[in-house]
């Protein structure tokens, strides 16, 4: 596992403020676009990876050796089901609250905007960055020659609220992950994020 270097929360908090400043000038849409755009750029900068088998990939992710787990500690709960125990943004969020106070409402406005215009999966503005990063990084990973696929199932905010997909999606995603809804809720009690990682049986045209 790579060396764990802790960030300085002073920097984390200032990045949140940077996005707030963008929203002052460009509104919630600008905030969201910048957050999504920079996560895409970040993901495009990471090195590509290839794995022979699914087990090789799952092992690399769980041990923190894959670029997919560069910024978070990931656990495999079923063949395609994965969880992140501690949200990698939780420290930054705690420090923001500790130093500055209540979160600027623009973060929730941007989260709602993302959930309505991109996909209904974010519990906090940081989820927009995180989930976009995961989606783009997945494109840089091949397993047995096939690209990795990522789909978010559940995300828990620091307030305890959980963002879940619509019922029809949720059923399909949980089935693909090989876990029941009850198991999914149990996982969300212990973890901050539940998602699906898989490869298509056939390469999409």
């Amino acid at each position: 596992m790579a060396e764990n270097i802790e960030s300085n929360p002073f920097v984390d908090v200032s990045v949140f403020l940077f996005f707030e400043d963008i929203s002052d000038k460009q509104g919630v849409e600008g905030f969201t676009n910048y957050m999504v755009g920079q996560a895409e750029s970040l993901a495009k900068s990471v090195p590509e990876e290839e794995y022979e088998t699914w087990d090789d990939f799952a092992k690399a992710v769980a041990s923190g050796e894959s670029v997919f787990s560069s910024f978070e500690s990931i656990e495999q709960i079923s063949k395609y089901g994965f969880v992140t125990n501690i949200c990698p943004f939780s420290k930054a969020i705690r420090e923001y609250i500790k130093r500055i106070g209540n979160f600027n409402p623009v973060h929730m406005e941007a989260t709602d905007y993302y959930n309505h215009t991109i996909q209904p999966s974010a519990a906090h503005s940081a989820c927009m960055m995180h989930q976009t990063y995961r989606k783009e990084v997945a494109k840089r990973i091949k397993i047995g020659g096939k690209p990795l696929q990522y789909a978010q199932i559940g995300a828990k905010a620091y307030t305890g609220e959980i963002a879940l997909p619509p019922e029809s999606w949720k059923k399909v995603l949980l089935e693909k992950a090989g876990i029941s809804e009850t198991q999914g809720f149990m996982e969300m009690r212990e973890n901050s994020c539940l998602y699906l990682l898989y490869v298509e049986e056939r390469i999409p045209r």
Binding site: S7, N8, V15, Y34, L42, F71, E72, P88, A92, M129
Partner: peptide, 14 residues
Amino acid sequence: MMDIAIYSLVDDMV
């Protein structure tokens, strides 16, 4: 992870 965003954000902003 928030801090890492600085570099891609600044790159985009520039």
